[in-house]
Design a protein around this nucleic acid. Structure first.
Length: 422
RNA sequence: GGAGAGAUGGCUGAGUGGUCGAAAGCGCUCCCCUGCUAAGGGAGUAUACCCCGAAAGGGGUAUCGAGGGUUCGAAUCCCUCUCUCUCCGCCA
């Protein structure tokens, strides 16, 4: 969420940002400002009442100590009315505060100036393209290759769990293991601390990274124990430092984690869900940066560079999109998507999304740092995939297939895979 | 899963109804003294919010795991929850 003080002082900017992100109604901004004023007035009133009541209570203590019971009794009688007032006021304040928070939760992060204004994915900018997107010609889509070689078993996955939960067999399982190791090693090299995380999260964590409110439908839920299955490693990794005050010397703090991700993906259909294009469970290496507010802009570029370097090393043609305001999401200030080329399908597949959240997540999580002068400020958070596995696997199968029907192993993976043909 | 104990500031740890946002020690910061390499003295050292102020700063409120209750007054009493530890059971 945004800081109400920031909203107060930059209401025009926040309103315009909302419109640019495609919200039709930005009245929440003015409503929040009014609600905040109301809240502050009530708090001032309550603080005064409590101050008065504290003074009296202290006096009573003194009188009791001196044995002047009757004098004390007199004051006790006076206080019973203000007690009532305090209770009512507290009730009113908590209602108003809740209304204010609900408004604040509905105001999205303000897009960075460098983000193109636009409504749909049509308005995303192609930031860069690398490699030559290959033609289909004799190439097959990855699901045909996987079926011929018996590498991925979608049917038994459906039997055992449901659609979108495939089994990976033999070399395909091994390929994913190699990719995970490759990605993690590259991240470690780049200064990320490798971690393994819980795969279930509680409600507070989901709120911290913004899955709640409004996006809980994307997650699987374990109702009995009040957990959600993580939709991305971002949630446990970023929440790792929730409610902490870091010292400036800890910055930047970078974490890399390989986790499975579970997404309900309600409403997806057709070619989008064919093969490995969209699954309910998939593996991903997630990168999270917690940085000084002044450094988040350059960190985003570094994060994007790192994610791109993985595709370069795998020699997979890709393009990077700078997402426009309307397609970038509620919590980001700026976002790049990396799309790998799928020659068997002749389409781009998103394999990474690198985002700067500014202080938006940090504020929800109370993730702060103390600078040299002792001042406490919100940190900035960023994250990006480095990378999501299934579509990379799809691109490898389709890009590295030979006309004879085999698939060779990318050079960068050979030391992990220890063979050069799948 | 069963039984018991506990949760206090950066850390250790006192505090069982009134002047306690909290003793003491450690750590840390600043200052002073001393001067021979280790010690002495002093001051400061949580977070959030509200009000006044241009600011420096001042005033106030809340927070002793979380939430609720009793009371004029709660770290202290009561209830619920969470977490930690010990023992038993189970188990990769």
């Amino acid at each position: 969420m945004l800081d109400i003080a920031f909203i107060r002082e930059n209401s025009a900017l926040v309103k315009q940002g909302m419109l640019n992100k495609g919200e039709k109604d930005n009245s929440a901004v003015d409503k929040a400002i009014a609600k905040d004023e109301e809240w502050r007035n009530l708090v001032t009133k309550l603080d005064k009442l409590r101050a008065d009541s504290n003074t009296k209570a202290k006096k009573i203590g003194e009188l009791m100590g001196q044995g002047k019971k009757e004098d004390a009794q007199k004051i006790i009688k006076e206080t019973s009315k203000s007690k009532e007032d305090i209770k009512n006021l507290e009730q009113e304040i908590s209602t108003v505060r809740e209304e204010l928070d609900n408004l604040l939760y509905r105001i999205p992060n303000v897009p960075d100036e460098s983000v193109p204004v636009g409504k749909t994915e049509e308005n995303n900018e192609v930031f860069s393209t690398w490699g030559e997107p290959g033609k289909k010609d004799w190439r097959k889509p990855h699901w045909d290759i996987a079926a011929e070689k018996n590498w991925i078993d979608f049917d038994r996955g459906s039997k055992v769990t449901g659609a979108g939960f495939p089994f990976y067999l033999g070399k395909m399982a091994k390929l994913q293991r190699a990719l995970i190791n490759f990605f993690i090693d590259e991240a470690s090299e780049a200064g990320y601390l490798e971690m393994q995380t819980p795969y279930f999260i509680n409600e507070n964590s989901a709120r911290g990274t913004g899955q709640i409110p409004d996006k809980e439908d994307m997650m699987y839920e374990i109702q009995r124990d009040e957990f959600f299955l993580i939709p991305t490693g971002e949630v446990p990794v970023t929440n790792f430092r929730r409610d902490e005050i870091l010292s400036e010397s800890d910055l930047p703090t970078k974490y890399a984690a390989h986790t499975p991700c579970w997404r309900r993906e309600a409403g997806s259909y057709g070619k989008d869900v064919r093969g490995l294009n969209r699954l309910h469970q998939f593996d991903k290496v997630e990168l999270v940066n917690i940085v000084h507010p002044e450094e988040s802009d350059q960190e985003l570029e570094a994060l994007r560079d790192h994610a791109e370097s993985l595709l370069k090393k795998l020699n997979l043609p890709y393009r990077t999109l700078l997402m426009c305001t309307g397609d970038m999401g509620f919590t980001q200030t700026k976002k790049y998507d990396l799309e790998v080329w799928s020659p068997g399908q002749e389409r781009w597949l998103e394999v990474s999304s690198c985002s700067n959240f500014g202080s938006f997540q940090a504020r929800r999580m109370q993730l702060r740092f103390k600078d040299g002068s002792g001042k406490i400020e919100m940190l900035h958070t960023l994250n990006g995939s480095g990378l999501a596995l299934p579509r990379v696997v799809a691109a490898i199968l389709e890009t590295y297939q030979t006309e004879s029907g085999d698939v060779s192993v990318p050079d960068a993976l050979q030391s992990y895979f220890k063979e050069n043909v799948l």
